[in-house]
Design a protein around this nucleic acid. Sequence first.
DNA 1: TTGAAAGCGCTAACAT
DNA 2: ATGTTAGCGCTTTCAA
Lengths: 337, 337
Amino acid sequence: MNHQRPQKKTTIYDLAELAGTSASAVSAVLNGNWKKRRISSQLADKITKIAEEQGYAVNMQASLLRRDKSRIIGMLVPKYDNRYFGSIVETFEIMARERGLFPIITCTLRNPELEVEAARTMLSYQVEWLISTGATDPDRITDLCLAGGARSLNLDLPGSKATSIISDNFSGARELTRRTLLNLQRKKGALLPLLFIGGRGTDHNTAERIRGFRAAHQDLGVTIEEHHILACGYAPEKAADALNALVTSEGRVPAGLFVNSTISLEGVMRWLKSSPVGVNSQPVIGCFDWDPFVALMGHEIEMARQDVAGMLKAVFDIIETGDSGARKLIEIQPIFA
Amino acid sequence: MNHQRPQKKTTIYDLAELAGTSASAVSAVLNGNWKKRRISSQLADKITKIAEEQGYAVNMQASLLRRDKSRIIGMLVPKYDNRYFGSIVETFEIMARERGLFPIITCTLRNPELEVEAARTMLSYQVEWLISTGATDPDRITDLCLAGGARSLNLDLPGSKATSIISDNFSGARELTRRTLLNLQRKKGALLPLLFIGGRGTDHNTAERIRGFRAAHQDLGVTIEEHHILACGYAPEKAADALNALVTSEGRVPAGLFVNSTISLEGVMRWLKSSPVGVNSQPVIGCFDWDPFVALMGHEIEMARQDVAGMLKAVFDIIETGDSGARKLIEIQPIFA
DNA sequence: TTGAAAGCGCTAACAT
DNA sequence: ATGTTAGCGCTTTCAA
């Protein structure tokens, strides 16, 4: 009969008693410092064996309390449920573990208050570093970290008080726009301006992507229609609504679209499928973000895939070298298929 | 000039000194136990204000070491980068926080050794509960938890030693198969058997889904071709290879497919697009899993969406009621659009 | 080659 | 109404 009744926890004192030795010997053996302490390998073996038998696991809370460095590294992320952030957290965990660090991650649902609360909680857990990913107010978090004895980095969205690692939004968007314009030319036989949709006009990334969007049009001598730049927010519904309003007022669906994320793309595609006008139009699309199923959708969609591994490599380089503290903006080139 | 030089950490002793009081008063105030201790609200306010000013954050390590319950709850998850697991972890975090618990999550990449190691690490961090999601060897983890003073639950994939919360795979698959068969009948004018593809024949979920797949065929009087049940693994490439082999040997693409996950669907769709035979066939598809972009793909695809919120509700019900410990199998109905 | 002991920051029982 | 104190389990210096 299994009552799922967990045992009382074994401590190093229990192990010491069982092995007829002291807690400090047990501690040393279990930490691999026993050559340094010149403990007999006989004793070491005995202790190891007993620990195994008892299913002993260190109490990290006690261990960390005593130690000076926690080797805990935290990450704040807005959402888990899309491929971009999903792959960020997955890669972050793998790379952290490879470096002997313990990653803790928490999602903040794009909620500024939750961000601050989560940052505080992470500090309570003695993180040595805190990575704010796509944070609404990264500088606030940097301040908290500074006060709380941790270092911080920004990822995806930049801040002004800590080093930021982001995609090269300007040249990524420029290239994505260029490709999409050419796809459209191939299809329609003429260069026609695109509609920009999705994102917040106030965020750095969107602003930079709009700049790249403009540059690519200019490069090819195409004139943008200013009211065709819709930084309407990222949410699917927002994109769908904005597109619907535009199409209603103009009577037709633009021939080409620059969509600012897969999140927004979800709304755009849904609207296209559900609207009578939309369903017959097959606009050429460029999307700043990547998703495997989008890659498989009917009309080819050009995608700029953000280089998650590259960005996190940069993050860990800074963490490992300890970095002098000069705050920098590191821009990583997105990948085109 | 900002050297990113983090401060030395403030302790309750520092606060006590600043407030001209004792550490225990500070502790009591900061934990909200001050009415019980009948501390003057004057002192309480003063302490709170000073703590705020100093950017104080408790040291969880110290606090937990002293406390008896950690309120930490762990989750092991195979991957982050798909919508199903992404939404599991996101919902898990939200629901845990709502209940005043601190969630820690780690992904184990379907690697059995990593699973065990991660479980051990979680125990070191004093988790009170550990949820094994889609684990390859959940019973092993339950044993570890039992020995390490934690309780455990299985999610998504069942185990025999702890309560398991999973989708109702049998009736979900039966309904999904029924719907797909009828879609196929609508398209082709006849009832034709489907191909089952994806998953591991050895896992409980796949076995149950195959059982449901058979039942639905039987319900409608359709005869299954036994060699059309391909439990070839979940990975996209495995599904693509299996489908390719079958089509090569039979010379045609089956008219209807039951795909065992979005992961496998990725491989199936990629193969269909890339192969000369596949590109002209538009098989009717049912997928046991949900993804927003799949919902938008050309041919309608029937999807069984696993009820993530429902499953986690069941998880937290057990955690909150403390539950007697009798191990049960709880099956949650998937959702059809 | 090993053990004793101090103390990490905090909580809670016990004093006052 | 508030302070003193004894640990929580571990690491590490110091002494033997």
